[in-house]
């Protein structure tokens, strides 16, 4: 078990022959991910990285049995790529692309509503189930196999958390980079829910940042459902000034409720083990788990 991706995932790369798509497809193949092909409209029938290129996602599903897709398509065409994957029956769509116009994402999110699929991202590092599948751009070697699930809006901060967990002697079940845009397919709560229901996951690291209410929603859900597994939490941006966009399109403090302090307070009140410093994530998890073991 694991969530979202595992060794049975049949992965295609949308934007396969572009430079980003090529580089990361290669990395994923080296990691051992079952990449069954890719899609680049107009290049169907060619071979790329010893795998077939298809003109459409539909074709990739029919001919290569793809059920998972990772998108490296440039921002102007990325929302369309999401909808194409959804229409073709892909079950897990991971969109790496950063910089998709909000208007396009409103349409894409509405389009996939009610369909039996999960969209991760956009503007995310992807999903990794160590030892089974890497459907993303993260450095695979950092993620050692284990029982801690990670949910995070940020890429490098996910790697940081995974590294601390591993250095503290634990490992990762699945790490889900949900993305830093204002509109994403899988808000924190839903990603946490998957890990709560995953028998392979013993505890969860939940990393958020300023802006929006996803972390607060997740924290309340964790409390309502009885704090079934310990959760260590961190919110980046305690020092971010209001009204300024901090890199990620969604990382902007708009009111009183979406500051780091406000989110951390709600998380604490809901029983999440909140760390003030991002350097304490690994140590805190170890402490929480050893206290639980006693």
């Amino acid at each position: 078990m694991a969530v979202l991706v595992d060794k049975n995932s049949k992965v295609i790369v949308q934007g396969f022959t572009g430079s980003e798509g090529t580089f990361h497809a290669q990395q994923m193949i080296e990691y051992g991910t079952n990449v069954v092909g890719g899609v680049t409209p107009g290049k169907g029938g060619q071979q790329h990285l010893d795998r077939p290129v298809f003109n459409t996602v539909k074709e990739a599903v029919e001919k290569a049995g793809a059920n998972t897709s990772i998108i490296f398509v440039p921002p102007p065409f990325a929302a369309d790529a999401i909808m194409e994957a959804a229409d073709a029956g892909i079950k897990v769509i991971v969109c790496i692309t950063e910089g998709i116009p909000v208007k396009d994402m409103i349409a894409a999110k509405e389009y996939i509503k009610g369909k039996d699929l999960t969209l991760i991202g956009p503007n995310c590092p992807g999903v990794i189930t160590p030892g089974q599948a890497k459907v993303g751009i993260m450095p695979g070697f950092v993620f050692k196999q284990g029982k801690i699930g990670i949910v995070s809006k940020s890429g490098t901060l996910t790697y940081e958390a995974a590294d601390q967990i591993v250095k503290a002697g634990m490992g990762i079940s699945t790490a889900i980079g949900i993305g830093g845009d204002p509109i994403i397919g899988t808000p924190t709560k839903y990603a946490v829910e998957m890990l709560m229901n995953d028998p392979e996951t013993e505890a969860i690291v939940m990393i958020g940042e300023i802006g929006g209410s996803y972390e607060a929603d997740a924290a309340r859900w964790i409390k309502e459902t009885g704090n079934k597994k310990p959760v260590v939490g961190f919110i980046a941006g305690q020092t971010a000034p209001p009204g300024r966009r901090m890199g990620h399109a969604g990382a902007i403090v708009g009111g009183h409720d979406d500051t780091a302090a406000a989110k951390m307070k709600i998380m604490s009140e809901c029983g999440v083990h909140v760390v003030e410093s991002p350097a304490e994530i690994g140590a805190k998890m170890l402490e929480v788990l050893s206290a639980k073991a006693k």
Partner: peptide, 17 residues
């Protein structure tokens, strides 16, 4: 100076702490 927006914010927090 940091790579990644989330880690950059987290680094600012470390400086403050």
């Amino acid at each position: 100076m940091v790579n990644g927006a989330g880690l950059a914010m987290a680094t600012m927090d470390i400086i403050k702490l």
